[in-house]
């Protein structure tokens, strides 16, 4: 683990300098295998913090649902479960293509990596557009923040906007991460011995997907 090889250096913050001749001497502090495992462990820890971030909102959701059961029941009927269902399918598919991208990277098929990541990014875009349509519908019904009917369902809508808003932000960040991973594929940097960025990006994207899988039934279905 610590024979301190002098090649293949990378770390979580410096993956864009993977070719060894461009790496600054200082990051010669661990070998490639250690670097891969370190980056992956780091990513899992980061995902743990993300889950705890959302856990706060899920806790609040549970408590307010208990306080205002009738309101939550009525308000969830105001949501369009068909659009929600569609978005769920879109994200599931995007997770599938992200997984294909990882597989392609492990085989050094850089073009396939780009293709699959772009499909995932496009799915993220579709998800956001549908979400925007849903928000637009809320706005036109006066149920957006400050709208005339907002107060009717204010407890549900408050937590709804927090949850879906934070999730949408994560979709945007996920799209950026996937795009960054794909630029490396464009430069043909992935090979069976180096595919860390695309794997980490896909891990993050799966988390974004997973959170939505919880959100969809909680908000749209079980009312």
């Amino acid at each position: 683990m610590s024979s301190v090889a002098q090649h293949g250096t990378t770390d979580f913050g410096s993956m864009d300098t993977a070719p060894e001749h461009r790496a600054p001497p200082h990051v010669h502090h661990m070998d490639a295998v250690t670097a891969y495992h370190a980056a992956k462990l780091g990513m899992w820890l980061f995902l743990a913090t993300e889950i705890l971030l959302f856990a706060v909102l899920f806790t609040a959701f549970a408590i307010f649902k208990w306080y205002y059961f009738a309101e939550f029941h009525a308000a969830s009927k105001e949501l369009n479960w068909k659009l929600g269902m569609f978005n769920t399918a879109v994200l599931l598919f995007s997770s599938f293509t992200a997984a294909l991208a990882v597989d392609a990277a492990q085989h050094g098929q850089n073009r396939k990596v780009v293709k699959n990541l772009f499909i995932s990014i496009a799915c993220g875009g579709i998800f956001l557009i549908v979400k925007a349509i849903e928000y637009g519908a809320k706005y036109s019904h006066g149920m957006f923040i400050g709208g005339e009917h907002f107060h009717q369902f204010s407890n549900f809508l408050s937590i709804y906007y927090c949850l879906t808003g934070l999730h949408a932000l994560h979709v945007v960040i996920g799209m950026i991460v996937l795009f960054w991973a794909s630029t490396k594929a464009m430069r043909r940097m992935y090979s069976p011995v180096y595919y860390t960025p695309v794997e980490l990006g896909a891990l993050y994207w799966h988390l974004v997907d997973l959170i939505w899988i919880y959100l969809f039934p909680l908000l749209y279905l079980i009312g």
Binding site: F12, G13, S14, H29, M30, A38
Partner: peptide, 14 residues
Amino acid sequence: LGAKDVAFPRLNLF
């Protein structure tokens, strides 16, 4: 730990 640096030096600076 007998290491040359932390695992992610750039993240450390960040």
